[in-house]
Design a binder for these strands. Sequence first.
RNA 1: UGCCCGAUGGUGUAAUGGUAGCACGAACGACUCUGACUCGUUCUGUCUAGGUUCGAAUCCUAGUCGGGCAGCCA
Length: 592
Amino acid sequence: MTDEKNTAAAPAPSDFIRDIVAQHVAEQRYAKIVTRFPPEPNGYLHIGHAKSICLNFGIAREHNGQCNLRFDDTNPAKEEVEFVESITTDVRWLIAGWADHCLAFKPKGAHPAPVTSNGKPDRYIAPVPPGENTEAFFASDYFDALYEYALELIRRGKAYVCDLSPEDTDKYRGAPDQPGRESPFRNRSVAENLDLFQRMKAGEFPNAARSLRAKIDMASPNVWLRDPLLYRIRHVPHHHAGDKWCIYPLYDYAHCLSDYLEGITHSICTLEFEVHRPLYDWILEALDLPRALPHQYEFAKLMPNYLIVSKRNLLRLVQEKVVSGWDDPRMPTISGLRRRGIPASAVRRFVTSVGVTKFNSVTDIALFEHAIRDELNTAAARRLAVLRPIKLVLTNIPAGESIPCAAVNNPQAENPTTRPIVLTREVFIETDDFAEVPPPKYFRLKPGGEVRLKYACIIKLDEIVKDAAGAITELRCTAQLDTRSGQPNADKKVKGTIHWVSATQCVDAEVRLYDRLFTVPEPAAEPDFIKVVNPKSLEVVQAKLEPSLASAQLEDRYQFERLGYFALDPKDSAPGKLVFNRTISLKDTWAK
RNA sequence: UGCCCGAUGGUGUAAUGGUAGCACGAACGACUCUGACUCGUUCUGUCUAGGUUCGAAUCCUAGUCGGGCAGCCA
């Protein structure tokens, strides 16, 4: 379906993170480059995540490395299996045929195993290729290991159990421009900390009654170093780990150690984690681990205009039924883009083309639209379809006669093939392709004017038939049959060529015309982005299609000539009931 | 008033002390049995002020502007 030619031919991208990786490869610092994509299963993946996926899998791919799909599931209150399933599907779709050989899973149910590294006891979880009895990595599979590491931190005097309430913890933390104060529980003995932490795990204390904290520096100018919490008490079951735990690790503690356990070399995340990096390093260094430590690198997230890219706001669109669901074709979610008919290759090309920097920028959505059109231009089969039909009668063709014509399937192909279509007395043309009072430079059908029916012949408009109310019911024309391909006057030139379908040999279909969801470039900056939803973001029409489209395939992409790119809706289309989504219109430089 | 990060045409990005380039976009033109594609021409840029240097987008200093950080979220 999707043509990989463009992506494959594109030069390997270069950016500051890839430069660092390339240097590490040159130095032979690591045996293998291992990255990871670590979503929290609390929502659907969107175009912003696609950038991270393509970065992480792209780097792995460029160095024969590996990229782990890992669920960062340390907060059971917000997470659901529905999301681990959708995320897995979306990631696999996005990288299919491109980097799936880099995707690493683990045996189903596997946990980190005891190993010996550099002569010292260690823990490691080995990757396997996705397949039977495998699954993605889960941070929650490391809870036992993480607990052991916490015990070790306590023994080393680098962590303590704190009895401060959440409110008091906040107060003691101070402010960015003001140092915090040390917790009164900061200097408990190792024995007491060990005892208390074990009892936290055993469920002896209620939610938030105590926490485990790293002992770092309450006066640090970086607030994340002011004795950050490592564990909190939450008496809730976990979607993956079951009901074994009532203490759950926090992101900063779990993430760096998960990276270590999986042997990640480059842990790539977005800019807001920059201030967390010292903590990431502190935890790993505090444990004196025997293998090479992972390192964190940060880049600016993708922010395209005319879109919202925030789980909270996307959720609102779903909940308030502005869209039909997370996979509504107007949503910037991966599932929405997929349902809309956008090839994964176009998503990849777009997110790669914007580059990787530390500069917060707004990317023009036109860049995405360009990537989509460009991929589809080579991949899509051309077909004739009329969205808003108006009847046209070719008065010199007898009723019942079928004149065979050959239509090109894809002019971009190296050896273009054709398919047969037929011209009949009655055809439909696009309402927009006729104007009784044409504007200047109007190339289409107008009174007394000539136009070519694509792949058929030139016609001349003789008569406009109207009903009693003055509405146009049909256009009567003369077909110049000697201007058909292969006929003596085939080369006759007219300014306009329009598409059409036979009125007697066509199929009906519902066609959904999608447009931008928002009318302003920065909807998220509005007081209420619901107020700037584009009322015309979805228009449904009953279209007439050429007969070959009756057997359209879900995975195929079509260009309805002169209109745009279309694909079958995977949810609502069924045998005998065609539903097409407009992926994107053709570029239109004809100012209306 | 604290700490961290950043700033190159309309947008995104490259140039790693040596000719500011590429893509998107826009405008105009050529071609055209898709007003698409393709091709051609044009458009607009190094945040400011000092300094180092034969030479600065790049290094230094100060400033300006923007983003991030005070969840028992990630």
